[in-house]
Simulated assay, not measured.
Amino acid sequence: MKPKHILTLLVAIVIIAAVAYTLTSTDSPEAYIEKVEAERERQFKFIRFNAESPLTESQKQSFTKLEFYPIDPTYKVKALMVTIENKKVREVPLTDGSKERYIEHSWAEFEIQGKPQRLLLMQSMDESDKRNFFLAFADETSGVETYGGGRYINARQDGKSSITLDFNLAYNPYCAYNPDYACPIPPRENILEIPIPAGEKNYDK
């Protein structure tokens, strides 16, 4: 039986978080695009070849690429972190009906497509680096061009009260590839009423 929980597969998360941390506002547009493309290539190789990939061996044989939206730097946004004073532990439902516990840490407030947005930043209970946050979100592309269960961003605080959210690095949970995995469902606070045509598209089985 395959392991059920996506959070047991830390290798992919570490790779994506590390790349997100290196993408700073000092990058030229060309350098930024190169870094995102490099991350996408690493992501493909992990899914295609790594023993911890969510794909079955038979899926790997026919797997040739991941689908992404074109890279658009306007979907890399600097957000204001508004700390939740009375932090609570939330039991986040997973796709198999079980739950995982996260800390409700902050609100990320930003503007995109000319509209103000606010998303809930959560932190794993066992996160050792308190600058790292987990963001699960859904938007109007969910269930159409992107996975219906939403997508994830691993974000890192980069200022006293700021965090960069790079939707070009939004990726699918492992249950998008294989239903044997159980993945956190985006909280209701993180369901955007706009499309986010950035990051990974749905996996074409």
Rank of each mutant, 00 (worst) to 15 (best):
S142E: 08
A79Q: 07
I71H: 04
R101D: 13
D126Q: 13
K130L: 13
F137W: 10
Q123E: 02
M122V: 12
K60V: 12
P93L: 05
D139C: 07
K76D: 03
Y75G: 08
Y147E: 11
Y69N: 10
R118V: 00
Q117C: 10
H105I: 00
I103P: 03
S161E: 15
P93I: 02
Q59W: 13
S161C: 01
L121M: 08
K76F: 01
L120W: 05
S161R: 12
E91K: 12
E140K: 15
Q113L: 14
R101T: 09
L80I: 11
A108P: 03
Y75C: 04
F68T: 03
Q61Y: 12
G143F: 05
R101L: 01
T141C: 10
K130T: 12
Y147Q: 12
Y75I: 12
I163A: 01
D139W: 05
D129T: 05
E109L: 01
R90G: 00
F134H: 11
L121W: 05
E104G: 02
L119N: 03
E104M: 04
G149W: 12
Q113T: 09
I112S: 09
Y102F: 15
L121A: 10
E109F: 01
A136L: 05
P70G: 10
G159E: 14
K115A: 13
S62T: 15
L120V: 04
T95V: 02
K88V: 05
E109M: 00
D126W: 00
E100N: 07
G143V: 01
F133S: 03
Y102H: 04
L165D: 10
G148M: 03
D126Y: 02
S106T: 06
R118C: 04
F63H: 05
K65L: 13
K78H: 06
T64I: 13
M125G: 05
L94P: 01
Q59G: 05
K60M: 14
I71K: 11
E140M: 14
D126H: 07
I71R: 08
Q123N: 02
D129K: 10
G114C: 06
P73H: 03
D72N: 15
Q59S: 08
V77T: 06
L135W: 12
F134V: 07
Q157C: 10
Q61F: 06
Q113E: 15
L119W: 04
K160I: 11
R156C: 07
G114W: 02
R118G: 02
Y147L: 06
A136P: 10
R118Y: 03
T74D: 14
D96A: 07
S162F: 06
V92M: 09
P73Q: 08
E127C: 02
L80D: 14
A138W: 06
Q113M: 13
